[in-house]
Write a protein that binds this DNA or RNA. Structure first.
Length: 649
RNA sequence: UGGGGAUUAGUGUAACGGUAGCACGAGUGACUCUGACUCACUUAGCCUAGGUUCGAAUCCUAGAUCCCCAACCA
């Protein structure tokens, strides 16, 4: 007999998102079959990922599950932001769930825009999020039955330049590509309109001539911009992407990976499907703006495969990955465009890409957000094709949710007000037991010094509150609990000449030590207090810098006020950073900054201290901390029902 | 103007011809040594108009609104 009141909680069944539905539908189609390994196909420039292929083909693949191989393909031209986190978590999560693989691939096809500086930052961020691309045993957020799967590793688009070049020559030979000598300006002029086709006088150039010129392009015999290789598709297509798109352009620019070997570089559309193909990627997940590119993506793979045969071992068709588009993340009160984020950095509006106010992964990490919270946030949003504006508060909620469970509690006073306990012995100090985390019984307790003079939060005292019945804190005549200490009753306050409160006077009840009130001598029920406030002993307090943050922009959609597109800086919040000197309980002084991302770090095991200052929010140590002075960042405040109430008055 | 997408409570997201559900938010209350957490209750929705059907969020037709596309960027 099962007791209905005691039925174990069944974990919520998260509905399959549309991508997962596609994954399941295509199970049968995704057999590792008749596609050519580039090595087998006799293509020059041997690709060194034979073991990758073996791992997928081998017994690690699970029966009855679709083969899933995803990738995250950033161009190393900027730092990753929380929008990328959505993509990374989606791709890696999908691979993990189906015991598939996840590749981190740098889409480095344009050397003029890319820098190695960004590569290391991207690797760090992706791994920190828990998408452990280099660990073959990684099972990520799988469904718990383990086995198989793993990190595919790090890949580079530039590793495939030889293959792309060979494939391009095949297309020329098949009459699907030609060398065009129109200048960029001319191409633009001849682009046509929805009803007027584009034109190119070079379209019918004989294949042999195009081949000769293409080789010359590669050999550096032609100047930048003088000619391009174009796919011959449809100059009248209503989809402009199909109006003979560029495949190669000439750029005499050194590449961080291939050096000066190449002076022609493939365009995104030509390169991307090949990259996916050579890696055996099954589901090429990208954002909505690439929907118009999908026909081209498919066209290129089909063009390469034309004339190839599954029976011809050396000339089998290459793998055709499936492009799937989903809506990118658009959070309120911030911006995600790389260009504009770069502007904030360059203009010194923020301290850097990892400024704790930035929506970059490095920024939110420094702010104290956790990968668990980011993942919960993204899971909560799901993946759809609906473009929606996401309330940034949802991410903050996810952060609170996680930190509430794991962050040890401490006491700190941000805006101090001196408090004197008139009836407490001069010079006496007691060490009081304070619980470290009420959410986690295993977290134990610590000793905190208590003495005659304390600091309390200025907000916790009001001489004459506007609505006394709802004010549970210190006010003359009212008794409140000092967390883990005593009941204190406010008697009076001191003021300076201007009438500002300079100190609060209280008396304490020694019988309430520990913060509990015993029953009265004649069996009266214990006194109750409505409020509990935090404190630090003035003589023992440790000073530290605390940085409080507000959102970077005042408008939900910066630069979009009133439907008109304006300058996003018009909505900049000039007061997004406040630096104060706070008083901390001494135990906090023992905490030391350590990077989550130090060498060899394990995703998910964060090392930077993350704590709760009771009643004030979650805080984390900033790397600016020195041996003598700590710097604390406020990650997020606690929810504050009183603030709402107070705002009403 | 041409093409490609999207539209379900305030927000996000399910339901795939058969009872419109979930989460967050918001509101009320309970509990509480954090005005936190937790718990209970409440709140509110299928873009519009037609059609097919015993039955439509779902299929059809027409319309509305929003997003993307005419880089040798990705």
């Amino acid at each position: 007999m099962s007791d209905p009141t005691n039925t174990p909680l069944v974990p919520p069944v998260r509905p399959l998102n549309f991508i997962e539905q596609i994954v399941k539908q295509d199970n049968a189609a995704l057999k590792w079959g008749a596609w050519a390994d580039p090595v087998d196909a006799g293509i020059p420039g041997v690709l060194d990922h034979g073991k990758e292929k073996a791992a997928i083909k081998g017994p690690a693949r699970r029966i009855g599950k679709p083969r899933v191989h995803t990738r995250f393909p950033p161009e190393p031209n900027g730092w990753l932001h929380i929008g990328h986190a959505k993509s990374i978590l989606l791709n890696a999560g999908l691979a993990a769930k189906y015991d598939g693989k996840f590749n981190l691939r740098f889409d480095d096809t344009n050397p003029t825009k890319e820098e190695m500086e960004y590569v290391e930052a991207i690797k760090r961020d992706v791994k920190w999020l828990g998408a452990d691309y280099e660990n073959p045993d990684w099972s990520g957020a799988g469904d718990g039955d383990g086995g198989g799967g793993g990190g595919g590793g790090i890949f580079w688009a530039s590793d495939y330049f030889d293959h792309m070049y060979e494939f391009a020559k095949e297309l020329i030979l098949k009459g699907h590509a030609y060398v065009c000598e129109l200048s960029g300006e001319e191409v633009s002029k001849r682009r046509g309109t929805p009803s007027i086709p584009a034109t190119s006088p070079f379209r019918d150039r004989p294949a042999a001539e195009s081949m000769k010129l293409f080789r010359e392009m590669k050999l550096g015999k032609h100047a930048d911009g003088s000619m391009t290789l174009r796919a011959k598709i449809d100059l009248a297509s209503p989809n402009f992407n199909l109006r003979d798109p560029m495949m190669y352009r000439i750029m005499h620019a050194p590449h961080h990976n291939t050096g000066t070997k190449w002076c022609i570089y493939p365009m995104y559309d030509w390169a991307h499907g090949i990259e996916d193909s050579l890696e055996g990627v099954t589901h090429s997940i990208c954002t909505l703006e690439f929907e118009n590119h999908r026909p081209l993506y498919d066209w290129f793979i089909n063009a390469i495969n034309e004339g190839r045969s599954p029976e011809d071992h050396l000339n089998r068709p290459i793998w055709h990955s499936q492009q799937i588009e989903f809506a990118k993340l658009i959070p309120t009160y911030t911006i995600l465009s790389k260009r504009n984020l770069l502007k904030l950095v360059q203009d010194r509006t923020v301290s850097g890409w990892d400024d704790p106010r930035m929506p970059t992964i490095a920024g939110v990490r420094r702010r104290g957000y956790t990968p668990v919270a980011l993942r919960a946030f993204c899971d909560d949003l799901g993946a759809t094709k609906t473009e929606s504006l996401i309330d940034f508060g949802r991410l903050e909620n996810a952060v609170r949710d996680h930190l509430n469970k794991v962050a040890p509690r401490y006491m700190a006073v941000l805006r101090p007000l001196k408090l004197i306990i008139d009836n407490y012995p001069q010079g006496q100090t007691e060490l009081l037991d304070c619980v470290n985390n009420p959410e986690d019984p295993g977290a134990g307790s610590r000793k905190v010094p208590f003495s005659r003079e304390l600091f309390i939060e200025r907000d916790d005292f009001m001489e004459s509150p506007p609505n006394p019945k709802k004010f549970f804190r210190l006010t003359p005549g009212q008794e409140v609990r000092f967390r883990w200490a005593y009941f204190l009753k406010c008697v009076d306050c001191d003021k300076d000449a201007a009438g500002n409160v300079t100190a609060v006077h209280c008396t304490y009840d020694p019988a309430t030590k520990g913060g509990d009130c015993p029953p009265g001598p004649n069996g009266e029920p214990p006194r109750k207090v409505k409020g509990t406030i935090h404190w630090v002993s003035a003589a023992h307090a440790v000073k530290a810098e605390v940085r409080l943050f507000d959102r970077l922009f005042k408008a939900e959609e910066p630069g979009k006020s009133g439907g008109a597109i304006g300058n996003f800086m018009d909505d900049f919040n000039a007061n997004s950073l406040e630096v104060i000197e706070a008083h901390l309980e001494p135990a906090l002084d023992a905490l030391k900054y350590a990077s989550d991302c130090a060498d060899g770090f394990t995703p998910g095991a964060f090392r930077t201290p993350r704590v709760q200052f009771e009643r004030l929010g979650y805080f984390t140590l900033d790397p600016d901390s020195t041996g003598t002075k700590q710097v604390w960042n406020r990650t997020v405040t606690l929810k504050d029902a009183w603030a709402k109430e107070a705002a009403k008055i």
